[in-house]
Write a protein that binds this DNA or RNA. Structure first.
Length: 579
RNA sequence: GGUCCCGUGGUGCAGUUUGGAGUGCACGCCGCCCUGUCAAGGCGGAGGUCGCGGGUUCAAAUCCCGUCGGGACCGCCA
């Protein structure tokens, strides 16, 4: 076997004169005749030109070992595009290690290839510099996070993949039990309960780069399986957790990008919802939501006779948005839950123009324009509805119109704090937890727990916090309840009976009876962080073998049917899907 | 559960609005020529179930219905 002496991309003019052996795949070939051919040999470090002066049948993607002498290229023949462009390998002895069929798609990266085809031949796709770079970036993120957590006193602990299903949260993936027919394991949505048990177990500071699985619909930033930095610490506050995570994220970012992010600003959940209509605001651009409810008190215009009116200013939008584009936006707003979209152009003279102006007073028109500082050529887009709907729809509209690609510009990390304890109030008047039922309320809101009724519950804040990057939710965490009294009270408010609580979370509640330290934790998505640090819009680009949006794998054809014997052994019988 | 975009030789696209012979472009592939190229160049050639099924029509890549696959999003993701 030929022994490799150098990587292709690492040869430099200082190596001139050396006898070397490089190994890799044949990239581009420039064959002049049987007397002269230039072979670009590629490995994960880059490309080196090899000069071959005999008749050789070398095709694209053949795997070869080339031994020869490093030499300076002829005068004026160097290639500035390559790091190895001043040199080449001559007097080549070429050993073909594997022949290859022509690749199923171009190996150069000038054209985007259909996702299905890329994934079916992922082993070829992975050879491209883009995927090589991304997966190596991912490895750097992983290792720097490990180093950062250990530097901060955390120890890595593995938790099981086959666990009990819990009813709360995302849909579980389940695994049938052969030894316990009719019983199923669940795959973990996160190691949430185990890490809290680790705290009761006195492990003090736990971390894990954990695989999590959720059977929910896939998106650009969501796969069935994803990796999180999962962590939990005892005897700490929200402030400590934010500092731990900030340090880890900064360390990882610095390792990848070479520059350390500055301090991460904070915003309360309420402020984020009001200014950006989102709990993961993309603060790289403006177009903030402006409250105009006051302007329309006592209005004659029926569309504005609602509890909340807000608008955004689309600078220069009047020239960009033709009538059919506005109609398309209106339709989107309706799909998102609004009744419609109120829109105005700012005309040459500086006045609002639009179908709704005839129902509005002069004063209303001028106040709308003034509060947005709208100028000629701008577009005013407004939603009128309940506050929750207005913020939601206007937040989505803002992204639709103004959002830059997720990786462009600066890295805008942002902490969102003071999440509400309850996300909604059910029809029976009982609140529904926003995070999970072990989330600690904010100290100053504790007494509201006693007196609140109905929608008042929604104003109770919690010690839950999210980390956001360029409009993507990187992760979330909370201070956990360790007091049995508060936990009982929360269960009571949620309408969870003692028996039910014992059934659902019994082992955790049992554990807490044996001496639980105050603890808090966090988890953030490594795929998402890596994607943004890699300049990618989609986490599939930083995952070696991802699934398609429909959850299948074109490479292995997963998911597949099981044969009858296999099902029999597991005690399973299939029913045809209802149509 | 829903909305939208895409599907045409191996790859990426144009052609679809306004139906008229599988027409075109670029890359790749095969063969020949070529001793300094680097997205090499020149000449020649092969390669097609226009995703699939049905309908309308004298005639469908093109219009209609359904379906499959890929992508983006809403819901969902405590």
């Amino acid at each position: 076997m030929t022994i490799r002496t150098h990587y292709c991309g690492e040869l430099r003019p200082t190596d001139v004169g050396s006898q070397v052996t490089v190994c890799g795949w044949v990239d581009t070939r420039r064959v002049h005749s049987e007397h002269l051919a230039f072979i670009d040999l590629r490995d994960h470090t880059g490309i080196i030109q090899c000069v071959v002066d005999e008749k050789l049948d070398l095709r694209s993607e053949y795997v070869v070992a080339i031994s020869g002498t490093v030499r300076t290229r002829f005068k004026g023949k160097s290639n500035e595009k390559l790091d190895t462009g001043e040199i080449e390998i001559g007097d080549c002895d070429v050993q073909v290690l594997s022949v290859a069929e022509p690749p199923p798609f171009p190996m150069h990266e000038r054209t985007e290839v259909d996702e299905n085809i890329r994934l079916r031949h992922r082993y070829v796709d992975l050879r491209k510099p883009r995927m090589q770079k991304n997966l190596r970036t991912r490895a750097k993120v992983n290792s720097s996070i490990r180093a950062s957590m250990e530097k901060q006193g955390f120890i890595e602990i593995e938790t099981p993949m086959l666990i009990a299903s819990t009813p709360e949260g995302a849909r579980d993936f389940v695994v049938p039990s052969r030894l316990h027919p009719t019983n199923f394991y669940a795959l973990p949505q996160s190691p949430q309960i185990f890490k809290q048990l680790c705290m009761v177990g006195g492990l003090d500071r736990y971390y894990q780069i954990a695989r999590c699985l959720r059977d929910e619909d896939l998106r650009a930033d969501r796969q069935f399986e994803f990796m999180q930095l999962d962590m939990e610490a005892s005897f700490v506050s929200q402030e400590d957790i934010i500092n731990f995570v900030t340090e880890a994220v900064k360390d990882a970012t610095e390792t990848v990008s070479g520059s350390r992010p500055s301090d991460i600003p904070r915003m309360t959940w309420l402020e984020a919802m009001e200014r950006y209509g989102s709990d993961k605001p993309d603060v790289r651009f403006g177009m903030e939501l402006i409250d105009m409810t006051g302007i329309f008190e006592g209005t004659e215009a029926n569309v504005f006779k609602v509890s909340c009116v807000k608008g955004i200013l689309y600078k220069g939008g009047s020239d960009v948005l033709a009538r059919n584009a506005i109609d398309a936006l209106t339709e989107k707003c309706q799909n998102w839950g609004a009744k419609g979209l109120a829109w105005f152009r700012v005309g040459e003279g500086g006045g609002l123009e639009g179908a709704l102006t005839k129902f509005m007073s002069e004063e209303e028109i001028s106040e709308v324009q003034n509060c947005l500082s709208a100028e000629s050529g701008d577009m005013v887009l407004m939603i009128a509805d309940e506050r929750k709907v207005v913020n939601h729809v206007l937040g989505l509209l803002r992204l639709e119109i103004g959002r830059p690609p997720v990786h462009s510009g600066e890295l805008e990390f942002l902490w969102i704090t003071e999440f509400p304890l309850f996300g909604d109030v059910g029809e029976n008047g009982q609140p529904i937890p926003a995070h999970h039922p072990f989330t600690m309320p904010l100290e100053e809101d504790l007494e509201k727990l006693d007196s609140a009724e109905g929608d008042e519950y929604l104003a109770i804040r919690s010690q839950a916090y999210d980390l956001v990057l360029n409009g993507w939710e990187l992760g979330s965490g909370s201070v956990r309840i360790h007091s049995p009294e508060i936990q009982s009270q929360i269960f009571a408010i949620l309408g969870i009976e003692k028996d039910e609580a014992q059934e659902k979370f019994g082992f955790l509640l049992d554990a807490f009876r044996y001496g639980a330290p105050p603890h808090a934790g966090f988890a953030f998505g490594i795929d998402r962080l890596t994607a943004i640090l890699s300049g990618e819009e989609n986490i599939r680009e930083v995952i070696a073998f991802p699934k398609t949006q429909s959850g299948s794998d074109p490479l292995t054809n997963a998911p597949t049917l099981l044969d009858a014997g296999h099902l029999e052994e597991l005690g399973l019988r299939l029913t045809p899907p209802s149509t």
